Computed example of a mutant assay.
Amino acid sequence: MGEYSKALEYYEKSIKIREISLPPTDLVLAGSYNNIGQVYRNMGEYSKALEYYEKSKKILAISLPPSHPLLATPYNNTGVVYENMGEYSKALEYYEKAREILELSLPPTHPSLATSYRNISGVYRMMGDYSKALKYYEKSLK
């Protein structure tokens, strides 16, 4: 509904309860931090979004094996923020990390890989590197 302030209010109440009742490496906390990051990203408050994505990433890195596909989520979301900020080389760095994790953990025809390739191609397009953009668009389509 676009009521970001109201969403944040409820997420903040939820996270306070979860921080008290759950261990600090619980995956539910990682998901909650990710959701708060999403709200801040939608509000255009990119530094706050990055802060929460980092919190999510730290928990996932501790709680999951390095090739678990969920670990790609905060890297991808961080890439989106940097892309929105016009920092394309940083966006590409995070999208590539997400891609590496997904390629290790998922079959080559998984839809999440297609999304990852599409994200990378979009950054290359914005950077004006159309041949690389086309390469990743074609991988996504395949």
Rank of each mutant, 00 (worst) to 15 (best):
P24C: 13
K13G: 06
V80D: 05
R41E: 12
G79K: 00
S67W: 01
I59V: 07
I20E: 15
E83N: 11
Y137M: 13
E83C: 08
I15G: 09
S131C: 10
K48A: 01
E3Y: 12
R125Y: 14
E100S: 12
P74I: 08
S67C: 04
S56T: 02
K16W: 09
L104H: 02
Y11A: 05
M126N: 15
M1G: 03
D26S: 08
S14Q: 07
G2R: 08
L27C: 09
A49Q: 06
S116V: 00
K139H: 10
E51D: 09
S63L: 04
T73R: 04
R125G: 09
E83M: 01
S140A: 15
S47F: 04
G122F: 07
Y124Q: 04
T115Q: 11
L27D: 09
A114K: 09
M85H: 04
R118N: 15
L27P: 08
M43F: 03
Y137T: 11
I36G: 07
L8K: 03
E45P: 02
R99H: 01
Y10P: 00
Y117A: 12
Y137N: 12
K16A: 14
S116C: 10
S5V: 13
I62C: 01
Y130Q: 11
P74R: 11
A30T: 12
P23V: 14
T73N: 10
E12G: 01
P66S: 03
A30P: 09
V81Y: 06
G31W: 04
